[in-house]
Design a protein around this nucleic acid. Structure first.
Lengths: 343, 343
DNA sequence: CTGAAAGCGCTTACAG
DNA sequence: CTGAAAGCGCTTACAG
């Protein structure tokens, strides 16, 4: 009952080890290891003794030792392009919120939309043999793609989806969502609908395609109404883009901004110039970010289920990490058109 | 010249190891280890041979093995209360941006302003023996404080400062910043200045004190003008708070919101209700977040140097991790009053 | 279902 | 300035 571990000397860290647990519970270290990893082939009685000893000693496994012995760490690396877009912050929170209770640590990497940075992060994180990997979208360098594949680390892609077998993804159709909101503007009777974008990442370009298709279907496509600016999106950029577009194309009667921050900027610029929204020009955004429901007028937008994407992607990854069969390799979580006053 | 490592069998991961580098460069493994850790007591010639072999073999140290042997990982844990407030996102970006080139990995923990969550994160992260720790502010449970101290892990506190010896901090005086902006409102001739807050974290309460002192000094303090709401801050909350305050205290002539998102919401609510800003009521915010310079009218606020705080804190932590003497244990990076149209 | 042995890839502590 | 030995705390692979 009281064979508490004897403090050792030398290089010992003084930490309670798996061997201590084995000694106290009267089983071999391997049995302790198996029990802790949830192996099914341990006698219930021994398992109970082990759990009791763990609790009594306050044993916490050493993740470094575990990683070294098993060549697999308890880290899950998550690569997102940006934290400036609240979208990814919410995605990340959902991922971390479901990963932590499962005993995994999240390693967050921000690529800043740059292939070279993504490669560098991948190189660094994969050298630590993470248990799993979550990456954003499918657009990356061949080198990056190869690193992921060669690593053998289970990987789930988020935000976009693909039916390609062997590739796991949870997201939504950016194309369809953009098409839906563009159609909404058409249904409102708008004739000259502009698409105003920043950042120009792959998803922004997919939205462009959805916009184009909706307009082409209606016979209203006009390339002069596309504003494609590679600068990072922000409220200020949206305001500038609004002013520039109306100066150049005074007869535009609707604007679909690729992200809500731009749209909010557009709305503020309209207020400043006393341009009536939606009377003279309707404005729509994308993502439904904080504040969009408070604007004047309130902003019509598309709500994307990023928190749910994060959760579902993590659950899918967990299954892959356990080695479970994952039959449904693609999950499309859809979107919701949120019609407010601005259209 | 060509003693390339022979592929081994058994449990080997096939990975290039430190022993491979030692063999190729013709020195002992310890010399390789010392060279890679930047020890000064290695002959330049041997060091050169080692570096050459590292490059040739593409050797990447195994962080798990290093952590196990040295009882210190290459991770730096960073604890922030929230990622919803863009303030902390920018802080984090700065930390990660200076930490990565130094070969450290950032472990981001979000406490959601909850002591219990901070304790849980600390327990989890400290069990991995991180190389360093960055935490937000000084307000935490005794248990958390003790865990940090007992761990012996170098720790830097951000956002606030304290002169207590042995405690390292980089931040600004929330009290002084709040006092400065309140004084600015007084100088504009405002008589009934409200403080409207959400979240009520320690820094928000320090700002309250700065506000109180400025008003008390001017003989204008009135507790009826304080709105202290524990809900998380958001644009929507600011709008509601604005409406409620003006209904209850119609003679208020200035509002200092504890964060820019609230202030932006207040500004939008004023627009909606056609309440003239700053004529009828002046509005000021805090932190200078995205969009504040685009509001109608543009928002007067306090710019806090969070990116610089992140960088300086990381450099201080790096010095502590190296074991260097750090004489200046407190760095106050100040703030900047940004006067725009709303006051 | 259980265990003794070996090993993962580094660094520490001790010599020289 | 350099190195041989031991060890960090786990898990793998092999037996039984």
């Amino acid at each position: 009952m009281s064979e508490l571990p004897i403090p050792r000397r030398g290089r010992s860290s003084g930490r309670v080890t798996l061997d201590d647990v084995a000694r106290v519970s009267g089983v071999s270290p391997i049995t302790v290891s198996r029990t802790l990893r949830g192996a099914r082939n341990v006698a219930p009685e021994l398992s109970a003794r082990v759990h009791e000893a763990v609790a009594r000693l306050g044993y916490v496994p050493d993740v470094a030792a575990r990683a070294l012995a098993s060549s697999r760490s308890s880290h899950v690396a998550v690569l997102v392009p940006s934290l400036t877009n609240a979208l990814f912050v919410e995605l990340l929170e959902a991922v971390q919120g479901t990963l932590m209770p499962m005993g995994f640590q999240t390693l967050i990497g921000v690529t800043h939309y740059q292939a070279a940075q993504e490669e560098a992060l991948l190189r660094s994180y994969l050298s630590q043999r993470p248990a799993g990997l979550i990456v954003t979208g499918f657009d990356r360098s061949d080198a990056a793609r190869r690193m992921i594949e060669d690593s053998g680390v289970p990987c789930v892609h988020v935000m976009e989806t693909t039916p390609i077998p062997g590739i796991y993804s949870v997201g939504l159709s950016q194309h369809q969502a953009a098409r839906a909101i563009t159609r909404h503007l058409l249904q409102r009777g708008r004739q000259r609908i502009a698409y105003v974008a920043g950042q120009l990442d792959p998803r922004v370009m997919q939205r462009l395609q959805g916009y184009r298709q909706a307009l082409a279907d209606a016979g209203r496509y006009d390339p002069a109404l596309e504003v494609l600016d590679p600068s990072p999106t922000s409220i200020a950029l949206g305001a500038r883009q609004f002013e520039a577009l109306l100066a150049r194309q005074p007869d535009v009667d609707a604007i679909f901004f690729c992200n809500d921050d731009l749209a909010q900027g557009g709305l503020l610029a309209a207020l400043r110039h006393k341009i009536e929204v939606p009377q003279r020009v309707a404005i729509a955004g994308f993502n439904d970010l904080d504040g969009s429901d408070q604007m004047l007028p309130t902003l019509t937008t598309v709500r994307t289920p990023r928190a749910e994407i994060g959760t579902r992607a993590t659950l899918m990854l967990a299954a892959l990490m356990r080695g479970d069969e994952v039959t449904e390799n693609t999950v499309d979580l859809g979107f919701e058109l949120v019609v407010r006053e601005s259209t």
